[in-house]
Amino acid sequence: MKVIFLKDVKGMGKKGEIKNVADGYANNFLFKQGLAIEATPANLKALE
Rank of each mutant, 00 (worst) to 15 (best):
M1C: 13
M1H: 00
M1W: 04
M1G: 02
M1Y: 09
K2L: 13
K2Y: 13
K2N: 10
K2P: 09
K2G: 02
K2C: 15
K2H: 08
V3Y: 01
V3T: 00
V3I: 11
I4E: 00
I4M: 08
F5M: 07
F5C: 03
F5H: 01
F5S: 00
F5G: 01
F5D: 00
L6K: 01
L6R: 02
L6S: 05
L6W: 02
K7L: 05
K7G: 04
K7H: 12
K7T: 11
K7W: 11
D8S: 07
D8M: 04
V9I: 09
V9T: 02
V9W: 06
V9F: 04
K10H: 14
K10I: 12
K10N: 09
K10D: 14
K10W: 12
K10C: 13
G11M: 06
G11A: 05
G11S: 08
G11I: 01
M12I: 14
M12Y: 10
M12G: 06
M12K: 07
G13R: 00
G13T: 01
G13D: 01
K14S: 10
K14M: 11
K14N: 12
K14C: 11
K14P: 01
K14V: 13
K15P: 06
K15V: 09
K15Y: 07
K15Q: 10
K15N: 04
G16V: 00
G16A: 06
E17A: 08
E17G: 05
E17P: 01
I18T: 05
I18N: 02
I18W: 08
K19A: 11
K19E: 04
K19I: 13
N20C: 15
N20I: 15
N20F: 15
N20M: 14
N20R: 14
V21H: 01
V21F: 08
V21Y: 05
V21L: 07
V21T: 03
A22I: 12
A22S: 15
A22P: 15
A22Y: 11
A22L: 11
A22N: 13
A22H: 15
A22G: 08
A22D: 13
D23W: 15
D23H: 11
D23E: 10
D23G: 06
G24L: 15
G24S: 12
Y25I: 14
Y25Q: 08
A26L: 09
A26Q: 06
A26C: 10
A26M: 09
A26E: 07
N27T: 11
N28D: 09
N28E: 10
N28V: 08
N28H: 13
N28G: 12
N28F: 09
N28A: 12
N28S: 15
F29K: 06
F29P: 02
F29W: 14
F29E: 07
F29D: 13
L30W: 04
L30Y: 02
L30E: 01
F31Q: 03
F31G: 02
F31R: 03
F31C: 05
K32L: 12
K32R: 13
K32S: 09
K32G: 10
K32W: 07
Q33Y: 15
Q33L: 14
Q33F: 14
Q33P: 03
Q33V: 11
Q33W: 15
G34D: 06
L35H: 02
L35P: 00
A36N: 00
A36T: 02
A36K: 00
A36P: 00
I37T: 04
I37W: 07
I37S: 07
E38L: 08
E38R: 08
E38C: 06
E38Q: 11
E38G: 05
E38V: 06
A39H: 05
A39Y: 08
T40Y: 05
T40W: 03
T40H: 04
T40Q: 03
T40M: 03
T40K: 00
T40E: 04
P41H: 11
P41T: 09
P41W: 06
P41R: 07
A42V: 11
A42P: 06
A42N: 10
A42H: 12
A42Y: 09
A42M: 05
N43I: 09
N43G: 02
N43V: 09
N43E: 07
L44V: 07
L44M: 14
L44Y: 06
L44Q: 06
L44A: 03
L44D: 03
K45V: 11
K45N: 11
K45I: 11
A46S: 14
A46C: 13
A46N: 14
A46F: 09
L47A: 07
L47M: 13
L47N: 06
L47P: 05
E48P: 10
E48K: 07
E48H: 15
E48Q: 12
E48W: 04
E48N: 13
